[in-house]
Simulated assay, not measured.
Amino acid sequence: MLFQKKLRLWHTVNRRNEMNKMQVKAINMKEPGKIMFRDVDLGKLKPNEILVRTKACGICKFDINAFSGKIKDSYLDEPGHEGVGIIEEVGEEVGELKPGDKVAALGRGAFGNYFKASKNMVAKIPQETEDFEYWMAEPVACVVNGLRSTIIQPGDTVAIIGCGYMGLLLTQGLPKEYITHLFCIDINDERLELAKEFGADTILNSIQTDAVEYIKSEKGEVDVVIEAAGAQGTSDIATELLRKGGKLIIFGHHVEKELVDMGAWHMKGLRILNPSPMLSSDFSKDFQDAVKLMKRGTFAQKKLITHTFAFLEIQKAFSFVSSKPPHYIKGVILY
């Protein structure tokens, strides 16, 4: 019995040493518009770290901006953060999670075929999962953080500007049972129809309809506006829509500088909130709660994932997504 235990231990240590030396295939985005493959040594696992074999990684708007050269950051060396996969190896202090578990994970370099993540940023998904692309948890964690920070009150009237991937996740997650009316505004009819399916009371195509005029004529000014487009000028629309003392939630990531009407913000006494993950008091809890809510069906991504690409086609994938193709909502790299 003692010999067998020693033998199992030797195999475990030997395998871990092999993994520690393993060269994994990763990418970088140092040159705008170009993705470079490279071999990377991930190094030894820390006691609380997990090595994940990547099965899927989402293409986020931040990734697209990095690819286009709009973002200069160390992230360009290790892109990818919406990983899903299978645990390959665990650190000695990880606990319940084990090799072979299917997980969602938040870790740098998730566009590589392996990546590391801290144990508190890894959560088990259903072990029968085959379609890994539907279990990206990091974007949902951002939505959980945003909703938690916003503190929607019973009876509030809410408007979402921007029904892309994140705006539609927000639409799924909002407490519609006690919102008196939910408006969703976008310029894409297909996305607006999904917003309607996910619980929006009124959908408005702002190219065809003056959304501000329509909402004010129907409901007056609203209590909360969630700006989820990250586009120039949307904060002005939000400001016009809000009542005095209302909440402007800047959820979208605005990469470029822009002018905002702070005078109107002041005179209306607006409460401005920027619920990026940096605002969260515990993003690991947001992440774990996101997976729990996905398991409950509160968030469902099947209708949001419109395009998938093979890992070796990642250059083609980013070039395609950056062109803003029709019918696109979310793209995922598969492994």
Rank of each mutant, 00 (worst) to 15 (best):
E197L: 14
E133L: 07
K216T: 01
I185D: 01
V122T: 08
V158H: 03
D156V: 03
T150W: 10
E133M: 11
E221H: 08
G155C: 09
F132P: 11
A200L: 06
I160S: 00
G164M: 09
V140I: 15
N120W: 06
E240K: 15
P175E: 03
E177Q: 13
F115S: 09
T171P: 02
N205Q: 12
A200Y: 03
I125V: 08
L242M: 05
Y178L: 00
D223G: 06
R243S: 11
V122S: 03
K244F: 08
K219L: 04
K216G: 00
T171E: 02
L147V: 06
P154G: 09
T234D: 01
Y178D: 05
V144Y: 10
A195P: 14
R191A: 06
I179M: 15
C163F: 00
L242R: 02
G230W: 07
I203C: 03
A123S: 12
D210M: 12
A117F: 07
G155D: 08
H181D: 06
S149W: 05
E240P: 02
F132E: 11
Q172D: 12
I215D: 06
I161F: 04
N188A: 05
V144N: 08
C163S: 12
G233D: 05
G162A: 12
T150E: 07
D223N: 13
D210K: 06
I185E: 08
A228F: 12
L170Q: 07
V225P: 08
I203H: 03
K244H: 14
I226Q: 01
H181V: 13
Y214P: 04
E177L: 13
L192I: 11
S206T: 15
V140S: 03
R191Q: 11
L170V: 13
E213W: 06
E221Y: 01
A231L: 05
V224F: 01
Q127D: 02
L241I: 11
C142I: 13
F183G: 05
E221I: 00
E130H: 15
A238I: 00
C142N: 15
L242Y: 01
E130Q: 15
A159K: 08
R243M: 14
V144P: 13
E130S: 15
A123Q: 12
V144Q: 08
G199H: 10
D131Q: 14
I160T: 02
G162H: 10
E138N: 13
D156L: 02
I207E: 11
D186G: 11
R148I: 09
T150L: 12
A117E: 06
G220F: 00
G233Y: 11
P139W: 07
V224G: 01
I207F: 13
Y214C: 04
A229M: 02
E133V: 13
L168I: 08
V122L: 09
G230D: 04
E133G: 13
A141V: 14
V140F: 03
M166R: 02
E190C: 02
Y134D: 01
L147H: 11
I151K: 15
Y134N: 06
C163A: 12
L192H: 06
T171W: 02
T209Y: 05
T157P: 01
T129K: 12
H181P: 05
Q127P: 10
V224M: 04
I215V: 12
E138W: 07
A195D: 14
D186I: 12
D236K: 09
A137C: 14
C163W: 00
H181K: 15
T202L: 03
P175V: 01
I207Y: 14
Y214F: 15
L204K: 01
L147W: 06
